[in-house]
């Protein structure tokens, strides 16, 4: 039997689209707001808190990868962006741009994954949209999510708030997401067990903030990796950041792959890790909330905005924002 596929009619507003929304979207994501199928959703307000809004689009290829899929990613990415401001995520929107011919079975799996991940993060999908583009005008599936959360006015976490004297932590080994994608995406015959780290981190942020509000910066080192994210923090906060290469956690297989294809792990994307900057006395609380893999990797100093890596060899070098995406090289 031919697999059932997305046709132009799935996005055309007629019967097929309604059946699709009912059978797939509502079945996996249903909640009191989405079930009403109104054109928009009315949400609860928290008068003593501040609303926080973010949006992100997901075009990852392949859509299913070791350790995750585009559905899990589109929830985690947006939820983690909200939580990086210290916000508790409340609701997400969900928009699909589907390419004609995309298999319905795959789409159903992706939507199920969205439902499961949203539950894990404790957020609801409250409204959405589906468009279908002609074959050849998309890459199977693109997803956009926007997220609304609320933050306590006493919490002020921003890439502008890093101060001299602070310590820099990461919540676990770096580069696993990009190296998992690499294994699945490129036709390169490498066998290894690295999985994407794609995970919602909002509940951990919530736990951290229950113990201290004295956290200056939280940032997720997604595309561009650790080095690009910290360069941005150094610029925005006008500080000099020094990292200790030997303290930066990188899994053995990720390191081995980096050596083979010539990648720098400091520029690899992550989807379930945070950089957290805080005063030294708060680091035990960060470790308690984010687990034993959380490591202090550097410190913040007064000075011209700069990011310096003290290398394992005893030298040092400046790190800058990623200029070009990394491709396997021979030189």
């Amino acid at each position: 039997m031919e697999p059932k596929i997305i046709t132009i009619n799935h996005g055309a507003g007629g019967r097929l689209m309604h059946e699709f929304i009912h059978d797939s979207i509502v079945a996996h994501l249903g909640n009191s707001k989405l079930d009403k199928m109104d054109d928009s959703s009315v949400l609860q307000n928290y008068p003593h808190k501040l609303p926080v809004l973010t949006t992100d689009s997901y075009v990852v290829h392949p859509v299913f990868f070791s350790g995750g899929d585009i559905g899990r990613l589109c929830v985690c990415g947006t939820v983690n962006d909200l939580a990086a401001s210290g916000a508790e995520p409340l609701a997400l929107t969900l928009s699909f741009i589907l390419e004609e011919g995309f298999e319905l079975e795959k789409l159903d799996k992706i939507i199920a994954s969205i439902g499961k991940t949203a539950k894990e993060a404790g957020v609801e999908i409250v409204t959405g949209d589906t468009k279908v583009v002609e074959k050849g005008k998309g890459d199977g599936i693109f997803i956009n999510t926007a997220g609304l959360g609320f933050v306590d006015p006493g919490v002020s976490i921003s890439s502008h708030n890093t101060l001299p004297g602070d310590l820099v932590l990461v919540t676990g080994p770096l580069g696993n997401h990009e190296m998992a994608l690499f294994k699945d995406r490129e036709n390169m015959n490498f066998q290894y067990s690295v999985q994407s780290d794609v995970t919602p981190l909002n509940l951990k942020v919530k736990e951290l903030l229950a113990h201290t509000r004295n956290i200056h910066t939280i940032k997720d080192p997604t595309r561009g990796g650790l080095a690009s994210a910290l360069t941005e923090i150094a610029q925005n906060s006008q500080v000099r950041i020094e990292l200790e290469e030997e303290k930066i956690p990188v899994d053995k297989e990720v390191k081995a792959m980096c050596d083979l294809v010539g990648f720098d792990p400091l520029y690899l994307a992550n989807e379930g890790k945070y950089i957290i900057v805080c005063p030294p006395e708060e680091t035990p609380k960060v470790k308690a909330a984010f687990g034993s893999e959380t490591t202090v990797i550097g410190q913040v100093e007064k000075g011209q905005p700069d990011l310096i890596l003290n290398t394992a060899s005893g030298g040092n070098r400046r790190l800058i924002m990623m200029e070009n995406i990394q491709l396997p090289r021979i030189c």
Partner: peptide, 8 residues
């Protein structure tokens, strides 16, 4: 084998 990464 390179530290757990295997290939031909």
């Amino acid at each position: 084998d390179n530290n757990g990464v295997n290939f031909e």
